[in-house]
Design a protein around this nucleic acid. Structure first.
Ligand SMILES: [Mn+2]
Ligand SMILES: [Mn+2]
Ligand SMILES: [Zn+2]
Ligand SMILES: [Zn+2]
Lengths: 136, 136
DNA sequence: AATAAATTTGTAATGAATACAATATTATAA
DNA sequence: TTATAATATTGTATTCATTACAAATTTATT
């Protein structure tokens, strides 16, 4: 049982359960911005009775509770991560992995009247590993 | 028939057709970042035989040809726009409209080895109109 | 222990996007 | 022009991520 995951849930007043702890623990230890399906497949081994609906339920609960954030960089699936300090995302055109990148230092040129709640920066290009390999 | 739309297609060496001209024309005159479905519904009146598959086919063709760009700010549907000068996007939490916003002046803090092909900035918050109205 | 509340689970439904084959249109050759 | 090939559109079926919903299970309260 993951003490850190339990603490994260308690800090956000979300009642812990085996499934919730496992989801948070997975996100804490796997900073790969997984899809709901990837989380399900990763946890289905340790929780054989797990349902995919539970994953969706928990992700919604965690998002409403301010524990996770979803990422729309991929048009196929929604991806998730634990909310940590501000940062941007880089998706590699070649290997499709999503990297955490330091946030740009930006001066936003917002017209009069717009109020920002959230600002997301998405990069696409080639990651360091794929730059070295010749693209097949 | 829209002369401008025809020119845009010709400039990108895409053979014109009634359907292609109408799609480009719609995007040119309606800067609302529509979904494939919205485009279909808008054009189905003037082209009664239109198929939704055609809209998807054309949007893919236009994107490959460098005429349009898709936007992932909305997790439900992919949205489209004509490629114009660089700018950011603002999605209103209240009315869900997507606004063009001047691009931020950013200094990107990319680690060694990453090569950017594209960079997108998405804002979320409240638009000027919705700021005035009381939220029901 | 009994009851109520919360959580998980399985199944069915939704809906955007894609696959694919048939039809229609346009271009090229004869 | 007519025949033939290439291209484009259309309709239908399929895929698959996500949601809806009700039954079953687990946990909390009396
Ligand atoms: Mn991240
Ligand atoms: Mn735009
Ligand atoms: Zn890569
Ligand atoms: Zn608004």
């Amino acid at each position: 049982m993951d003490k850190t995951a339990l603490q994260i849930l308690e800090q956000h007043s979300i009642r812990p359960s085996v499934q919730r702890i496992e989801v948070v623990s997975y996100l804490y230890h796997n900073r790969i911005h997984p899809t709901a399906d990837e989380i399900f497949n990763a946890l289905n081994g340790t929780i054989p009775t797990l349902s995919k609906t539970t994953i969706y339920n928990i992700l919604k609960l965690l998002e409403d509770g301010g524990v996770v954030k979803h990422i729309n960089i991929d048009e196929k699936n929604v991806r998730y991560e634990l909310i940590i300090g501000e940062h941007a995302h880089f998706r590699c055109d070649n290997c499709s992995r999503i990297f955490d990148i330091p946030a740009p230092t930006s001066k936003h040129n917002l017209p009069e009247g717009f109020t920002i709640r959230e600002s997301d920066t998405y990069y696409q290009g080639i990651c360091p590993e794929c730059s070295k390999k010749p693209i097949v």
